[in-house]
Nucleic acid binder design. Structure first.
Ligand SMILES: [Mn+2]
Ligand SMILES: [Mn+2]
Ligand SMILES: [Zn+2]
Ligand SMILES: [Zn+2]
Lengths: 136, 136
DNA sequence: AATCTTCTTTAGAATAATTATAAACAAGTA
DNA sequence: TACTTGTTTATAATTATTCTAAAGAAGATT
Protein backbone atom coordinates (compact mmCIF):
# COMPACT_ATOMS: atom_id res chain seq x y z
CA UNK A 1 0.00 0.00 0.00
CA UNK A 2 1.56 3.21 -1.15
CA UNK A 3 0.09 6.50 0.01
CA UNK A 4 -0.88 9.32 -2.26
CA UNK A 5 1.97 11.36 -0.72
CA UNK A 6 4.50 8.76 -1.73
CA UNK A 7 3.26 8.78 -5.31
CA UNK A 8 3.52 12.54 -5.33
CA UNK A 9 7.12 12.36 -4.20
CA UNK A 10 7.98 9.65 -6.67
CA UNK A 11 6.51 11.66 -9.49
CA UNK A 12 8.42 14.75 -8.42
CA UNK A 13 11.64 12.79 -8.17
CA UNK A 14 11.08 11.69 -11.75
CA UNK A 15 10.47 15.28 -12.85
CA UNK A 16 6.87 14.51 -13.57
CA UNK A 17 4.42 16.96 -12.08
CA UNK A 18 2.07 15.22 -9.70
CA UNK A 19 -1.24 15.93 -11.34
CA UNK A 20 -4.53 14.50 -10.20
CA UNK A 21 -4.60 12.29 -13.29
CA UNK A 22 -1.13 10.88 -12.77
CA UNK A 23 -1.78 10.17 -9.12
CA UNK A 24 -4.96 8.34 -10.02
CA UNK A 25 -3.13 6.28 -12.58
CA UNK A 26 -0.42 5.48 -10.04
CA UNK A 27 -3.00 4.26 -7.58
CA UNK A 28 -4.68 2.06 -10.13
CA UNK A 29 -1.41 0.69 -11.46
CA UNK A 30 0.85 0.40 -8.47
CA UNK A 31 -1.37 -0.11 -5.45
CA UNK A 32 -1.59 -3.85 -5.88
CA UNK A 33 -0.02 -7.00 -4.56
CA UNK A 34 0.54 -8.71 -7.86
CA UNK A 35 1.97 -7.74 -11.19
CA UNK A 36 -0.57 -6.04 -13.39
CA UNK A 37 -0.74 -6.62 -17.13
CA UNK A 38 -2.92 -4.25 -19.06
CA UNK A 39 -3.77 -2.49 -22.27
CA UNK A 40 -4.48 1.21 -22.54
CA UNK A 41 -8.18 0.53 -22.76
CA UNK A 42 -8.08 -1.74 -19.68
CA UNK A 43 -6.46 1.06 -17.77
CA UNK A 44 -8.78 3.72 -19.11
CA UNK A 45 -11.81 1.76 -17.95
CA UNK A 46 -10.31 0.93 -14.56
CA UNK A 47 -9.61 4.57 -13.84
CA UNK A 48 -13.23 5.44 -14.46
CA UNK A 49 -14.39 2.55 -12.28
CA UNK A 50 -11.95 2.82 -9.41
CA UNK A 51 -11.53 6.56 -9.02
CA UNK A 52 -14.85 7.72 -10.39
CA UNK A 53 -13.01 10.53 -12.08
CA UNK A 54 -13.08 11.24 -15.75
CA UNK A 55 -9.79 11.23 -17.59
CA UNK A 56 -8.99 11.84 -21.19
CA UNK A 57 -7.82 8.88 -23.22
CA UNK A 58 -4.95 10.99 -24.52
CA UNK A 59 -3.76 11.49 -20.96
CA UNK A 60 -3.74 7.76 -20.38
CA UNK A 61 -1.56 7.34 -23.45
CA UNK A 62 0.69 10.21 -22.41
CA UNK A 63 1.12 8.96 -18.89
CA UNK A 64 1.72 5.35 -19.81
CA UNK A 65 4.38 6.48 -22.25
CA UNK A 66 5.94 8.75 -19.67
CA UNK A 67 6.04 5.94 -17.11
CA UNK A 68 7.39 3.56 -19.70
CA UNK A 69 10.13 5.97 -20.62
CA UNK A 70 11.04 6.39 -16.96
CA UNK A 71 11.24 2.63 -16.59
CA UNK A 72 8.17 2.16 -14.41
CA UNK A 73 6.36 0.10 -17.01
CA UNK A 74 7.45 -2.60 -19.38
CA UNK A 75 6.04 -3.23 -22.82
CA UNK A 76 5.31 -6.87 -23.60
CA UNK A 77 5.98 -8.12 -27.10
CA UNK A 78 2.96 -9.99 -28.42
CA UNK A 79 1.04 -9.67 -31.63
CA UNK A 80 -2.24 -8.23 -30.66
CA UNK A 81 -4.30 -5.35 -31.91
CA UNK A 82 -3.41 -3.62 -28.67
CA UNK A 83 -0.14 -3.03 -26.86
CA UNK A 84 0.29 -4.71 -23.49
CA UNK A 85 2.11 -3.18 -20.55
CA UNK A 86 3.36 -4.67 -17.33
CA UNK A 87 3.97 -3.19 -13.90
CA UNK A 88 6.66 -5.80 -13.34
CA UNK A 89 9.69 -4.15 -14.89
CA UNK A 90 12.19 -6.80 -13.88
CA UNK A 91 13.46 -9.21 -16.53
CA UNK A 92 10.92 -11.97 -16.72
CA UNK A 93 8.94 -14.07 -19.11
CA UNK A 94 5.29 -14.66 -19.93
CA UNK A 95 2.55 -17.03 -20.68
CA UNK A 96 -0.01 -15.62 -23.07
CA UNK A 97 -3.40 -17.23 -22.95
CA UNK A 98 -4.45 -16.78 -26.53
CA UNK A 99 -8.14 -17.39 -25.89
CA UNK A 100 -8.49 -15.14 -22.85
CA UNK A 101 -5.94 -12.65 -24.17
CA UNK A 102 -4.34 -12.61 -20.74
CA UNK A 103 -0.70 -12.43 -19.76
CA UNK A 104 0.67 -14.42 -16.84
CA UNK A 105 4.10 -13.90 -15.35
CA UNK A 106 6.73 -16.58 -15.54
CA UNK A 107 9.50 -16.28 -13.04
CA UNK A 108 13.00 -16.65 -14.32
CA UNK A 109 13.37 -19.85 -12.33
CA UNK A 110 10.29 -21.26 -14.11
CA UNK A 111 12.16 -20.95 -17.37
CA UNK A 112 15.78 -21.40 -16.42
CA UNK A 113 18.77 -19.50 -17.68
CA UNK A 114 18.91 -18.81 -21.38
CA UNK A 115 22.31 -18.65 -22.98
CA UNK A 116 22.37 -17.10 -26.42
CA UNK A 117 25.22 -18.76 -28.33
CA UNK A 118 25.10 -16.50 -31.35
CA UNK A 119 26.21 -12.92 -31.51
CA UNK A 120 25.87 -10.19 -34.10
CA UNK A 121 28.94 -7.98 -34.66
CA UNK A 122 28.42 -4.45 -33.42
CA UNK A 123 25.26 -5.32 -31.55
CA UNK A 124 24.68 -6.19 -27.96
CA UNK A 125 21.83 -7.90 -26.25
CA UNK A 126 19.28 -5.58 -24.73
CA UNK A 127 16.76 -8.13 -23.50
CA UNK A 128 15.89 -11.80 -23.72
CA UNK A 129 12.24 -12.62 -23.39
CA UNK A 130 10.34 -15.85 -23.63
CA UNK A 131 6.73 -15.88 -24.66
CA UNK A 132 4.84 -19.11 -24.08
CA UNK A 133 1.52 -19.22 -25.86
CA UNK A 134 -1.20 -21.25 -24.18
CA UNK A 135 -4.19 -22.95 -25.72
CA UNK A 136 -6.96 -25.12 -24.28
CA UNK B 1 14.64 -22.95 -56.91
CA UNK B 2 11.03 -23.91 -57.21
CA UNK B 3 9.32 -23.74 -60.59
CA UNK B 4 6.07 -21.99 -61.28
CA UNK B 5 4.51 -25.39 -61.95
CA UNK B 6 5.45 -26.61 -58.51
CA UNK B 7 3.86 -23.59 -56.88
CA UNK B 8 0.71 -24.21 -58.88
CA UNK B 9 0.57 -27.77 -57.63
CA UNK B 10 1.24 -26.78 -54.07
CA UNK B 11 -1.50 -24.20 -54.20
CA UNK B 12 -3.95 -26.71 -55.66
CA UNK B 13 -3.02 -29.27 -53.04
CA UNK B 14 -3.86 -26.67 -50.42
CA UNK B 15 -7.21 -25.95 -52.08
CA UNK B 16 -6.06 -22.51 -53.05
CA UNK B 17 -6.65 -21.61 -56.64
CA UNK B 18 -3.39 -20.87 -58.39
CA UNK B 19 -4.00 -17.31 -59.45
CA UNK B 20 -1.40 -15.10 -61.06
CA UNK B 21 -1.19 -13.05 -57.86
CA UNK B 22 -0.66 -16.01 -55.58
CA UNK B 23 1.99 -17.48 -57.84
CA UNK B 24 3.83 -14.16 -57.86
CA UNK B 25 3.68 -14.00 -54.10
CA UNK B 26 4.99 -17.55 -53.88
CA UNK B 27 7.92 -16.70 -56.09
CA UNK B 28 8.80 -13.63 -54.05
CA UNK B 29 8.39 -15.41 -50.73
CA UNK B 30 9.62 -18.93 -51.31
CA UNK B 31 12.19 -18.75 -54.09
CA UNK B 32 15.04 -17.92 -51.77
CA UNK B 33 17.89 -19.61 -50.01
CA UNK B 34 17.42 -18.04 -46.65
CA UNK B 35 14.52 -17.43 -44.35
CA UNK B 36 12.62 -14.28 -45.21
CA UNK B 37 11.19 -11.97 -42.60
CA UNK B 38 8.78 -9.35 -43.84
CA UNK B 39 5.90 -7.03 -43.26
CA UNK B 40 2.93 -6.72 -45.57
CA UNK B 41 4.31 -3.49 -46.97
CA UNK B 42 7.74 -5.05 -47.56
CA UNK B 43 6.05 -7.77 -49.55
CA UNK B 44 3.77 -5.39 -51.42
CA UNK B 45 6.76 -3.37 -52.59
CA UNK B 46 8.83 -6.41 -53.50
CA UNK B 47 6.06 -7.79 -55.67
CA UNK B 48 5.96 -4.57 -57.67
CA UNK B 49 9.75 -4.54 -57.99
CA UNK B 50 10.40 -8.20 -58.71
CA UNK B 51 7.46 -9.16 -60.88
CA UNK B 52 6.64 -5.79 -62.39
CA UNK B 53 3.00 -6.67 -61.96
CA UNK B 54 0.51 -4.63 -60.07
CA UNK B 55 -1.30 -6.25 -57.21
CA UNK B 56 -3.88 -4.95 -54.83
CA UNK B 57 -2.83 -4.42 -51.24
CA UNK B 58 -5.95 -6.27 -50.12
CA UNK B 59 -4.79 -9.30 -52.08
CA UNK B 60 -1.46 -9.25 -50.30
CA UNK B 61 -3.27 -9.24 -47.00
CA UNK B 62 -5.65 -11.97 -48.14
CA UNK B 63 -2.89 -14.18 -49.44
CA UNK B 64 -0.59 -13.76 -46.47
CA UNK B 65 -3.45 -14.68 -44.20
CA UNK B 66 -4.35 -17.66 -46.35
CA UNK B 67 -0.75 -18.88 -46.32
CA UNK B 68 -0.51 -18.26 -42.60
CA UNK B 69 -3.66 -20.25 -41.99
CA UNK B 70 -2.30 -23.11 -44.08
CA UNK B 71 0.89 -23.07 -42.07
CA UNK B 72 3.20 -21.75 -44.77
CA UNK B 73 3.98 -18.57 -42.86
CA UNK B 74 4.63 -17.82 -39.24
CA UNK B 75 3.70 -14.65 -37.41
CA UNK B 76 6.45 -13.23 -35.23
CA UNK B 77 5.50 -11.66 -31.91
CA UNK B 78 7.08 -8.25 -31.57
CA UNK B 79 5.67 -4.89 -30.71
CA UNK B 80 5.81 -2.93 -33.85
CA UNK B 81 3.31 -0.87 -35.73
CA UNK B 82 3.37 -3.59 -38.35
CA UNK B 83 3.01 -7.36 -38.15
CA UNK B 84 6.03 -9.43 -39.12
CA UNK B 85 5.86 -12.73 -40.93
CA UNK B 86 8.44 -15.41 -41.49
CA UNK B 87 8.88 -18.03 -44.19
CA UNK B 88 10.60 -20.26 -41.66
CA UNK B 89 7.67 -22.05 -40.08
CA UNK B 90 9.72 -24.37 -37.90
CA UNK B 91 9.95 -23.68 -34.18
CA UNK B 92 12.74 -21.18 -33.78
CA UNK B 93 13.71 -17.97 -32.07
CA UNK B 94 14.72 -14.47 -33.11
CA UNK B 95 16.99 -11.56 -32.68
CA UNK B 96 15.25 -8.27 -33.27
CA UNK B 97 17.50 -5.40 -34.19
CA UNK B 98 15.53 -2.55 -32.71
CA UNK B 99 17.30 0.16 -34.69
CA UNK B 100 17.15 -1.51 -38.08
CA UNK B 101 13.77 -3.10 -37.33
CA UNK B 102 15.11 -6.37 -38.71
CA UNK B 103 14.54 -9.91 -37.56
CA UNK B 104 17.32 -12.50 -37.56
CA UNK B 105 16.80 -16.20 -37.05
CA UNK B 106 18.18 -17.94 -34.04
CA UNK B 107 18.53 -21.67 -34.38
CA UNK B 108 17.25 -23.75 -31.53
CA UNK B 109 20.80 -24.84 -30.80
CA UNK B 110 21.82 -21.19 -30.44
CA UNK B 111 19.38 -20.89 -27.58
CA UNK B 112 19.31 -24.33 -26.05
CA UNK B 113 16.32 -26.26 -24.79
CA UNK B 114 13.80 -24.33 -22.75
CA UNK B 115 11.95 -26.18 -20.06
CA UNK B 116 8.92 -24.43 -18.71
CA UNK B 117 8.52 -25.48 -15.08
CA UNK B 118 5.15 -23.90 -14.50
CA UNK B 119 1.86 -25.07 -15.86
CA UNK B 120 -1.62 -23.62 -15.94
CA UNK B 121 -4.49 -26.01 -15.26
CA UNK B 122 -6.60 -26.67 -18.32
CA UNK B 123 -4.11 -25.08 -20.66
CA UNK B 124 -1.39 -26.57 -22.77
CA UNK B 125 1.63 -25.02 -24.35
CA UNK B 126 1.17 -24.05 -27.96
CA UNK B 127 4.54 -22.45 -28.60
CA UNK B 128 7.65 -21.23 -26.82
CA UNK B 129 9.45 -18.37 -28.46
CA UNK B 130 12.45 -16.36 -27.44
CA UNK B 131 12.89 -12.82 -28.62
CA UNK B 132 16.30 -11.28 -28.13
CA UNK B 133 16.34 -7.55 -28.64
CA UNK B 134 19.56 -6.08 -29.98
CA UNK B 135 20.92 -2.57 -29.58
CA UNK B 136 24.14 -0.92 -30.69
C1' DA C 1 -17.21 -24.52 -76.06
C1' DA C 2 -20.95 -22.59 -73.32
C1' DT C 3 -22.80 -22.34 -68.93
C1' DC C 4 -22.79 -22.38 -64.09
C1' DT C 5 -20.82 -22.14 -59.62
C1' DT C 6 -17.52 -20.92 -56.49
C1' DC C 7 -13.48 -18.56 -55.30
C1' DT C 8 -10.53 -14.52 -55.80
C1' DT C 9 -9.23 -9.88 -56.74
C1' DT C 10 -9.98 -5.24 -56.36
C1' DA C 11 -10.94 -0.31 -55.17
C1' DG C 12 -12.56 1.93 -51.89
C1' DA C 13 -14.86 2.49 -47.44
C1' DA C 14 -14.80 1.32 -42.59
C1' DT C 15 -12.52 0.30 -38.26
C1' DA C 16 -9.60 0.93 -34.52
C1' DA C 17 -5.29 1.85 -32.10
C1' DT C 18 -2.26 5.33 -31.66
C1' DT C 19 -0.21 9.93 -32.30
C1' DA C 20 -0.34 14.87 -33.26
C1' DT C 21 -2.31 19.57 -32.52
C1' DA C 22 -3.21 23.49 -30.20
C1' DA C 23 -5.89 25.79 -26.85
C1' DA C 24 -7.18 25.78 -21.89
C1' DC C 25 -5.41 24.80 -17.60
C1' DA C 26 -2.56 23.65 -13.55
C1' DA C 27 1.92 23.40 -11.20
C1' DG C 28 6.14 25.39 -9.90
C1' DT C 29 8.76 29.59 -9.22
C1' DA C 30 10.12 34.30 -8.38
C1' DT D 1 0.77 37.98 -7.91
C1' DA D 2 2.72 37.32 -12.23
C1' DC D 3 5.35 34.44 -15.10
C1' DT D 4 7.03 30.24 -17.04
C1' DT D 5 6.74 25.69 -18.17
C1' DG D 6 4.51 21.29 -18.16
C1' DT D 7 0.02 18.87 -18.60
C1' DT D 8 -4.61 17.85 -19.95
C1' DT D 9 -8.04 17.74 -23.17
C1' DA D 10 -11.08 17.43 -27.21
C1' DT D 11 -10.53 16.68 -31.53
C1' DA D 12 -8.28 15.80 -35.83
C1' DA D 13 -4.85 13.14 -38.27
C1' DT D 14 -2.43 9.01 -39.16
C1' DT D 15 -1.85 4.31 -40.17
C1' DA D 16 -2.26 -0.68 -40.25
C1' DT D 17 -5.67 -3.74 -41.00
C1' DT D 18 -10.27 -5.51 -42.19
C1' DC D 19 -14.63 -5.22 -44.57
C1' DT D 20 -17.71 -4.75 -48.63
C1' DA D 21 -19.57 -5.63 -52.76
C1' DA D 22 -18.93 -5.73 -57.53
C1' DA D 23 -16.10 -7.52 -61.34
C1' DG D 24 -13.23 -11.10 -62.83
C1' DA D 25 -11.04 -15.71 -63.10
C1' DA D 26 -10.84 -20.73 -62.15
C1' DG D 27 -12.89 -25.14 -62.01
C1' DA D 28 -16.69 -28.13 -62.84
C1' DT D 29 -20.73 -29.64 -65.64
C1' DT D 30 -23.12 -30.08 -69.61
MN1 LIG E 1 5.93 3.08 -25.12
MN1 LIG F 1 -2.68 -13.90 -39.58
ZN1 LIG G 1 4.82 -9.56 -16.57
ZN1 LIG H 1 12.44 -16.49 -38.41
Amino acid sequence: MTSKQEFIEKLRNSSLRPTKQRINICEVLFNRDKTFHFTISDLFNLIKDKTGEKISLATVYNTVHAFHKKGYLKEIPINSNQTYFDTNVTDHHHFFDVKEEKLIDLKNEDVGPIEIQKSIPGKKIKSVEVLVKLED
